[in-house]
Design a protein around this nucleic acid. Structure first.
Lengths: 363, 363
DNA sequence: TACTGCCATTGAAACGATTCAATGAAGCAG
DNA sequence: CTGCTTCATTGAATCGTTTCAATGGCAGTA
């Protein structure tokens, strides 16, 4: 009364069961290689597998998910896909998930709280097994995530740390990075150095600055506060470009002298370079500029940007590992332990920095 | 024997039914505002809705999908997320899908055939209701998509057209774009113009070149074949940068004279600019360069790139509309009609082009 | 022979919704 | 009072799996 409904092309497990002569239970056990499969006769296995292949059977994911309560998907939330920081991270995430045959559900919160919440709900509704949040340029409150962690959904943030012990995190060692940046310029002989700090609300800003300060102190370098600016808070991750340009302009107009500039991130650095170039200051001949992040376009800019690299792709992959570890943990009813990874930044020397010219190097 | 199992925090529809005093059927009808809801007494509706809210009921997406055979998700396939072309398109797609409360399932094929196929399978298994393929920098055979279309899953490609009538497409009018590019340089007074054509296998290459040729012909401009190069096929969408750099180098080394250059895309243009700058040729003072696409980084490069813009975000949104139209169509058992959209490119003038200097303008 | 344990397989109950035919009540015409 | 609509609600089947307790056969042991 139901079978063979003309051209209903979906092959169900029952079809496989019937044509192979076994019961759906057996078919399920064989095809999933479930624990009970130990007992199944090899001949049976073979027959079932063959008919499954012959009929072109593909399990219905939804039925499977419903029953097994596993969706084989992981939510991936970010706050602006146009942020060049995001793409390599996403690449890393995607790639790692692909290895585990998990599907990512991407959600771009546009740095809007309601969007963030709505997407969060959607993911919960879909029973994502884990959640990864790329939270680099973040101006919304993501405390909500703590609840997620409590709900026993393993979660990891990239570029942000949440207080509490429910959410793992992967961040770069910003302090070391800041230190590295300044150290590089210092070793090139620069002494009068300008700084553009990150927006106050960004979590990265403080530690990077701390690293800078610590190095300055240890090297006996004095930071001239007249050469220090701070980007304003802004939802737009590319706003650093404008900011970098503006502050550099101001410095130049105030006739401040400096032979090098440390920018909060690559976009800020590019903005600074644009301003310098426009004002006739050659980079790197007359002024060195160093960025932070090593977003892909840094290699393409003119001049190619010297910068502090975050291992973005690796960080994405790492977050996936952390989350998958969590997934497996509470699958096996083990305790999930929260991880806090801090990756090591790396100096990438390109064409925007150069030894301080004799002319420029006063002090 | 089952209810109230200590702290099983998931509220099911049955819970709502029981505490509100109605049957699951009624609850379902009310909460979904199904056709039958016309008959339900307002008081009942109210009571059900209230208890649902009070209990914090959230429908289990998987159960719903299983029964209704609608997954409320759309597959989004692309071939390299690191391609700057992709991100604005993805933004457009994401945004449009969000409006419809559909969830995107992102898949990055890395320009690999097996990955493409595997992801395709995953999406089919998950019963995506539609499929969008961002196929700009494409070196794999995607004929498989035709099958998808036949399976009654509405699909749309962006930046590529498939023969046959099963898959919709959204592409820019490349010919008009090519024409626009050359026209701009011509109007600026350039006559000796170099060209870097796109890789032979890319679908965009030919029409852009055709547009260029047609304009040249109509304007009586002669294209010097010694000034024309063609990028090699390459899986890397950023390879245009290298290519642009190399070909420009060669031209310079051969002492070819030209006052302007039309690049296949923005990355190629940036590569060309890099080579020119390195050789001491100032852009735009001594040589104008124009790109194609207007990827985000074009505005940030130094000098900011004049280019032919594709309305990338809008194209993404358009593809979503096309697909959703298809989804609705075969939901209402209407016929799905395939759409072929061609969007209009637009000249964006920035700082990399300038009127031909008297010195440079010979001919 | 009866008991035990192991093997190979299966019946049937979930999972949590949707959907449609069926039911009962009420209102109204004849 | 019967018959016919319309209204309001529901029972029960169904979607396609997974899973677990149960079954029956067979071999080995006491």
């Amino acid at each position: 009364m139901k079978r063979r409904g003309s051209k209903d092309l979906t092959v169900t497990m029952r079809d496989v069961a019937e044509t192979s002569g076994f019961s759906p239970a057996t078919v399920s056990i064989v095809l999933n290689n479930a624990p009970l499969a130990r007992y199944i006769a090899p001949a049976t296995k073979k027959r079932i597998e063959e008919t499954a292949k012959k009929l072109g059977y593909r399990p219905n994911a939804m039925a499977r998910f419903l029953r097994s309560k596993r969706s084989h998907s992981v939510g991936v939330m970010f706050f602006d896909i146009l942020d060049p920081f995001c793409t390599p991270v996403l690449r890393g995430i995607e790639n790692a998930l692909y290895q585990c045959s998990y599907v990512p559900i991407f959600a771009d919160a546009h740095n809007q709280r309601n969007r963030f919440e709505r997407y969060l709900e959607m993911m919960l509704d879909r029973h994502v097994e884990g959640l990864i949040v790329v939270a680099n340029w973040l101006f919304v409150d993501i405390q909500l995530l703590a609840d997620i962690g409590k709900r026993n959904i393993p979660a990891a943030t990239i570029g942000w740390e949440l207080p509490g012990d429910t959410v793992s995190s992967v961040i770069v060692d910003n302090e070391a990075g800041g230190r590295l940046a300044l150290e590089h310029l210092y070793q090139l002989g620069h002494r009068r150095i300008a700084f553009i700090r990150g927006p106050k609300t960004l979590i990265d800003s403080a530690p990077r600055w701390r690293g800078i300060q610590k190095f300055a102190q240890s090297a006996g370098l004095e930071i001239d506060s007249a050469l220090v600016a701070q980007l304003p808070d802004s939802f737009d991750p590319n706003s650093g470009f404008e900011g970098g340009m503006r502050f550099t302009d101001e410095l130049l107009q105030k006739k401040k002298r400096f032979t090098a500039l440390v920018a909060f991130d690559d976009l800020t650095a590019l903005g600074a370079i644009r301003a310098l170039t426009k004002a006739g200051v050659k980079v790197p001949e007359q002024c060195s500029v160093i960025g932070f992040d090593d977003v892909p376009l840094s290699a393409l800019s003119a001049p190619a940007l010297t910068t502090i690299r975050q291992p973005l792709e690796a960080m994405g992959a790492l977050a996936v590992n952390v989350v998958m570890e969590g997934v497996n943990a509470n699958l096996e009813k083990r305790d999930v332990n929260i991880a806090r990874h801090k990756t090591t930044p790396e100096l990438v020397i390109r064409d925007s920095t150069r030894a301080a010219s004799l002319a420029g190097a006063d002090d």
